[in-house]
Write a protein that binds this DNA or RNA. Structure first.
Lengths: 211, 211
DNA sequence: TTGAGTTCCGAATTGAATCCGAACAAGCAT
DNA sequence: ATGCTTGTTCGGATTCAATTCGGAACTCAA
């Protein structure tokens, strides 16, 4: 960002630019979305873009940040409810929430997320990763029996990458080879079975040790 | 591709263009890689690019095809060996192969794969999906006890998306939060535990039914 | 050897990203 | 209120890369 906004109206301008960018990218993809389009949609002139963003990349960066922040804000209030549930159900719920989130506003976010990697999206994922780790931690405190599961960090890493990308890809496909229900059930069982199996192994090994 | 190559030399040119594109993209990223750079590296003129590719996108498409084909070619000869192994070990092996593949030639492929999604990479994944499904099928024929696992299709879908993207992302990170060993162990256990758990459930339910 | 088809070239065109200096609006002191 | 300073917006000028085009150079079969 080339300059910090001092006055209220310029904050509104920055906001308008980011929202316009979402619309333009959803319509034409990130490569074909031009600064003129973004400026037109935002109702400002092209030059003004460069008062707040040093280049087009920076606008994409702000979009990524916004997307991640909105995702977190969407899940956050549901955390108390999620951690109370059975793990499989919690995961299914999250996936359904995430799908609804991607599809709101005529799939605005989904259409952008499809191309997200242009924008070095991964760099911005950290808050989501933190949120998920937080949920897992809280969940474990309420379900102490799950404390013996190994490799929680690796699991959340895999899950966040595999889960987000698989869902985004799936929703973008015209005729996917599996249904969304199969996909979400698969993701949930994959985690659920993993945990069950880890617990079974832990029980078995402690049994062996004590006998 | 604007024209089909008729003569031998033009096939070499097409090849040179694709290889040059890999180098240019690895160096500058897909957005900053210019047609001039690609032409220079390939040792041809800019205009010649357009004899074989209708635009830059098409070159990226050819890169994706090449990448997928090379990946399949790298795994294919190892299929007989893989299907003989225990599932967890087979997965670990595949991941190690894949890492080595990404890192050869000074990480040429890895550097390009990082940005792969610009190029609508997903469209080209189908051969990999087929290969993986083929491996699973052959594996099941040798290990008939695994036939009762449900949702094989969903599992390979999740695995191909989650696995490839998690590995590419992990290898691209400067200081990843987990090691490659933890990641690959996690991916392998995730699948392994899933299968084990499914088999346990299947055994249990058939037991219930017969009692 | 030759000419029809193929391949290659690089200057010219086009259009988008970015820069810049002038015009405009807001805040502030008098 | 009035003039001054600083923040904000504008849109044309500039720059640079993608793509086009007309013709030169090459290949190969007859």
């Amino acid at each position: 960002m080339a300059r910090k906004p001092r006055q209220a109206r310029s904050k509104a301008t920055v906001n308008a630019i980011v929202e316009a960018a979402f619309i333009a990218v959803a319509q034409h993809g990130p490569a074909a979305a031009t600064t003129r389009q973004i400026a037109d949609i935002a109702g400002i002139s092209v030059g003004s873009l460069y008062e707040y963003f040093s280049n087009k990349e920076a606008i994409f960066g702000a979009m990524s940040e916004r997307f991640v922040a909105d995702t977190v804000a969407m899940i956050q209030p549901r955390v108390p409810e999620l951690v109370r549930k059975d793990m499989r159900e919690a995961i299914l719920d999250m996936l359904v929430y995430f799908r609804a989130f991607l599809q709101e506003n005529d799939e605005l976010y989904l259409k952008c997320a499809r191309h997200a990697f242009t924008m070095d999206f991964e760099e911005y994922l950290e808050p989501v990763q933190r949120l998920l780790l937080d949920i897992v931690t809280q969940h474990m405190m309420r379900h102490p029996e799950t404390a013996r599961v190994r490799n929680i960090a690796a699991m959340t890493y895999i899950y966040i990458n595999g889960g987000i990308f698989a869902v985004v890809r799936h929703l973008s496909e015209q005729n996917p080879s599996i249904t969304f229900e199969e996909l979400s059930q698969g993701l949930s069982d994959m985690v659920g079975h993993y945990v069950d199996q880890e617990l079974a192994l832990a029980k078995q090994s402690s049994h062996n040790r004590s006998s």
